Amino acid sequence: MNERAFRRAVRAAMLSLGLALAACNAAGPAEAPPLEGARIGGPFTLTDQNGRQVSDRDLAGKWRVMYFGYTFCPDVCPVDMANITAGLKAFEKTDPERAARVVPVFVTVDPQRDDPAALKQFVSNFHPRTIALTGDPQTIAAVGKAFAIYAARTDGATPGSYLMDHSRQVYLMDDQGRPIALVPADESGQAVADTLDKWVQ
C-alpha cells in the first residue's frame, strides 16, 4: 500500500470511529412520563387553609404533588404527608431551583369536618408551601372523581364518629396541570425525592 492509499485508509478508519462514538454518545429517546395522556385532573376552585379561594389557574407554573386525605386520619395520611415533606426538602437540598417550583397540595375527602381552621392546624406540621383545600361536599366529590379518587365514610365505634376510607395514590402534575407520574409517598421520603428529581423540569 502506498502512502496516499495508507492516508485514505487512516482517514476512513477515523471517520468510522467518529461515527461509532457519536452513536454511542447520542442520547436515546426521552422516557415518556408514566401518566402522560391520562385523563386525570381538571379545573377546580376550592378554599384553602386561610379561607381564600384557590383555583387550578392559581397553580399555573407550579409542579403539584396532589394528595387526597383528611385531617382526622389516624395513621396513613400523616405518614404520607411527612414523606412528601421529607422528599421535597431532600430535593431542595440537591436542586433548590427545580424544587422551588414544586407545591404540595392536600385536598380533603372529609369536607364535613375539614374546615380551613382544621386544615391550617394539620398542614402546619408539614412543608411550609403546602396548600390545603376544602369545599362543599358536592365540589369535593367532583374534584375527587376528576382525579380518580375513591372516598367513602365508614362508621366508627361510637355514635357520630366515623373514618374515611379513601384511595391513596399521589399524583405529580406538571406546571400546566397535566398528570406525569405517581409519587410513592407510601414508601419513603427518599422515594419521593427520587421521583421529583426524575420528572420535575
Rank of each mutant, 00 (worst) to 15 (best):
N83K: 02
R168G: 03
L88V: 09
F126W: 07
P179A: 05
N125Q: 15
R178L: 15
V10H: 09
V76F: 07
G28H: 09
S161I: 08
T154W: 08
T71Y: 03
A32K: 15
Q190K: 14
I149Y: 00
A12F: 10
A141S: 13
W199G: 02
T154A: 14
T134A: 05
M14H: 04
E97K: 10
K62Q: 11
V143D: 00
H127W: 13
P34L: 11
R39S: 06
K89C: 07
Q49D: 06
Y171W: 15
T158E: 15
A22M: 12
H166G: 02
N2V: 07
R178P: 01
Y70G: 00
T47G: 04
A152N: 10
L21W: 11
G41M: 04
D110I: 08
N25M: 12
D75K: 07
D114T: 08
V170S: 05
A60W: 05
A27W: 09
P128N: 09
P159H: 10
L17N: 08
D48T: 05
G144Q: 13
R57G: 11
A12C: 10
A146P: 01
A38L: 13
S188N: 09
L15G: 13
R7Q: 11
A152L: 10
E92V: 04
F72V: 03
A32L: 13
A86M: 12
A27V: 09
R64L: 14
V143R: 00
E97M: 12
D174G: 06
T154K: 13
V102A: 07
Q112R: 05
R52T: 03
V103G: 05
A23R: 09
S188C: 10
F122C: 07
Q190R: 14
V102F: 09
A30F: 11
R153Q: 15
A157N: 13
T85D: 03
P111T: 05
V107K: 01
V102C: 07
Q176R: 14
R57N: 13
A13C: 09
A5P: 05
I40Y: 00
V10W: 10
H166P: 03
H166L: 06
R52L: 04
L35F: 09
V54K: 03
N125Y: 11
M14Q: 08
A146M: 06
V192W: 00
R98N: 13
D80F: 00
N50W: 07
D58I: 13
V65P: 01
E36N: 15
A20Q: 09
D56G: 11
P111M: 05
V123F: 04
I84S: 01
D186C: 04
L172Q: 03
H127I: 15
V192F: 00
C73L: 05
P104C: 06
R11N: 11
S124Y: 12
R64T: 06
R8A: 11
D115N: 11
V76Q: 04
G51N: 06
G135A: 10
P43G: 14
E97H: 08
P104G: 02
K62T: 07
D95M: 06
G144F: 05
C24G: 13
T47Y: 03
P29N: 11
S55H: 07
S124Q: 15
R11G: 06
I149Q: 00
K93Y: 07
T71L: 04
N83D: 07
R178Q: 14
L59T: 08
T94N: 08
Q121E: 12
P33R: 03
L59W: 06
V200C: 09
A132M: 05
G177Q: 02
N25W: 15
Y67W: 13
Q121L: 04
D175K: 09
D75H: 03
G69E: 02
